[in-house]
């Protein structure tokens, strides 16, 4: 479960004030709103990348407002993937696991599992500059899910993909919840995409999050 209670965040001259919202555990919530409404800022506050001036951020019932990003158990897939240019696809999938000092066998098993599901087995030794947009998004998704986070944050993951690639990526996202059992918060501009993937519809409008039918 993701819960925001009267959260205030400020970024330069822009700010979100007293924003409250709730995403039930295990659901896939689509967060929509105009460009510049503050969707990404809100996601950054949940991930711990923006300081919350006041209010509470709770994940799985635990207050994480003052916790550093790494302790929150949130996987993030940014808009452009933000892959690490010097690491291979395999190293992306083991990055969080190495930080957590997993054994080599456990890491290999997890890489095998994720690569098979995401269809990136053939790319494991490739570097990001050699990947297509769709492949890069799959790698970013695998990296974000590798350490079994409780929450997955997707920031317009499909916006830069062509129609054909988007259809494939949508299928992968549809299976995320079932396979990994995560709560998903998904920023999107596309209503059809939201309707296909989400079961909770949120709209950020004038600094307030409204639940839509």
């Amino acid at each position: 479960m993701i819960e925001l209670e009267r959260v205030t965040v400020r970024v330069g001259g822009f700010g979100l004030r007293d924003v409250s919202m709730r995403v039930p555990a295990g659901s896939h919530a689509a967060l929509m709103g105009r460009t510049g409404a503050g969707k990404t800022t809100l996601m950054e506050a949940i991930c711990g990348l923006r300081r919350v001036e006041s209010g509470k951020v709770r994940i799985g019932g635990r207050d994480v407002t003052d916790e550093v990003p790494g302790m929150r158990g949130v996987g993030l897939v940014p808009q452009d993937g933000a892959l690490f240019g010097h690491l291979t696809v395999r190293e992306h999938l083991t990055f969080a696991l190495e930080v957590r000092r997993w054994t080599r066998e456990r890491m290999e098993a997890r890489v095998e599992e994720l690569a098979g599901w995401l269809g990136i087995r053939g790319l494991l030794d490739r570097l990001p500059p050699g990947l297509s947009g769709g492949e890069a998004q799959r790698v970013a998704l695998g990296r974000a899910l590798s350490f079994h986070p409780r929450v997955l944050c997707l920031d317009e993951p499909l916006s830069a993909l062509d129609d054909e690639t988007r259809a494939g990526a949508c299928e992968v996202l549809e299976s995320v919840r079932r396979r990994e059992g995560v709560t998903v918060l998904h920023i999107t501009h596309s209503r059809p995409e939201a309707e296909r993937l989400a079961d909770v519809f949120l709209r950020l409008r004038e600094g307030r999050v409204e639940v839509e039918a």
């Binding site: 991930c47 711990g48 990348l49 550093v68 990003p69 790494g70 929150r72 949130v74 996987g75 993030l76 940014p78 452009d80 933000a82 892959l83 690490f84 240019g85 990055f95 969080a96 930080v99 957590r100 990296r143 974000a144 590798s146 350490f147």
Partner: peptide
């Protein structure tokens, strides 16, 4: 340099120093 990869490294469990060295 885009700061996003570094921020992603934080969410993956890196401290600031680890993200600096690794990313």
């Amino acid at each position: 340099m885009d700061p996003r990869p570094e921020q992603v490294a934080w969410t993956l469990g890196c401290s600031r120093a680890e993200a600096f060295w690794r990313v």
